[in-house]
């Protein structure tokens, strides 16, 4: 059990998809103008990641290695189609804002890279927890960026007015997302430098 917990912790902080691996940056900037959007898309990613990890893990012996990438893409597209039908029923208003990105989960690099690196080699249970960890890491990243941008950009959190004025309007503009991610990445690097004593080389951004 502890190894499963470690898989979740691993996805949450040490290999956080957004800040450490720098994978799937597009939604991280695009939908995070508020916490609500980030939460919605994050949950969709958790769903797709967990279910496609499990599917690939179960059927890994049937997938020929030479056609594995198209096979993974089809598996992901299947689960994305499912969540794309579920979400508008649960919350139509928020879905309208993140609609394009829910569909684009198909091409999120984080999901296919976890299938390739983990689920295609490991049995079902670890794959499930790895998917859960990576999904929650992604969710955590989206919510953190969303909270910072919403709070400083509009003075609100979850749509509730907290400050009553807009401290930094730039945060909700397109440029703000880039700045916030750049600075959070730098903070993660700085923390690692303080703990381990060496400066990390940041991820490849794919």
């Amino acid at each position: 059990m502890s190894s499963n917990l470690r898989l979740i912790w691993n996805g949450l902080i040490p290999e956080n998809p957004i800040f450490r691996l720098a994978l799937s940056m597009c939604p991280a900037v695009a939908v995070t103008t508020s916490v609500e959007n980030g939460l919605m898309l994050g949950l969709a990613v958790v769903f797709v990641q967990v279910f496609s990890s499990c599917t690939v893990s179960i059927f890994k012996s049937f997938i020929h290695p030479r056609i594995r990438i198209p096979a993974y893409v089809i598996v992901i597209a299947l689960w994305v189609t499912v969540i794309d039908m579920i979400l508008p029923v649960i919350s139509p208003d928020v879905y309208k804002k993140v609609e394009l990105f829910v569909k684009l989960i198909v091409v999120f690099a984080i999901i296919i890279s976890r299938l390739e690196l983990f689920a295609s080699k490991e049995p079902l249970i670890p794959s499930f927890f790895d998917g859960l960890g990576m999904g929650f890491g992604f969710l955590f990243g989206l919510c953190l960026i969303g909270a910072i941008r919403e709070f400083f950009g509009t003075g609100q959190l979850f749509g509730y007015d907290i400050l009553g004025f807009n401290p930094l309007l730039i945060m909700v503009l397109p440029a703000g997302g880039f700045f916030v991610i750049g600075f959070i990445m730098a903070i993660f690097n700085w923390l690692e430098y303080k703990i381990t004593g060496k400066i990390p080389t940041s991820g490849g951004a794919h």
Partner: peptide, 9 residues
């Protein structure tokens, strides 16, 4: 700490 991706962002 800004080298690489952070400064690119």
């Amino acid at each position: 700490v800004f080298r690489g991706l952070p400064i690119a962002f």
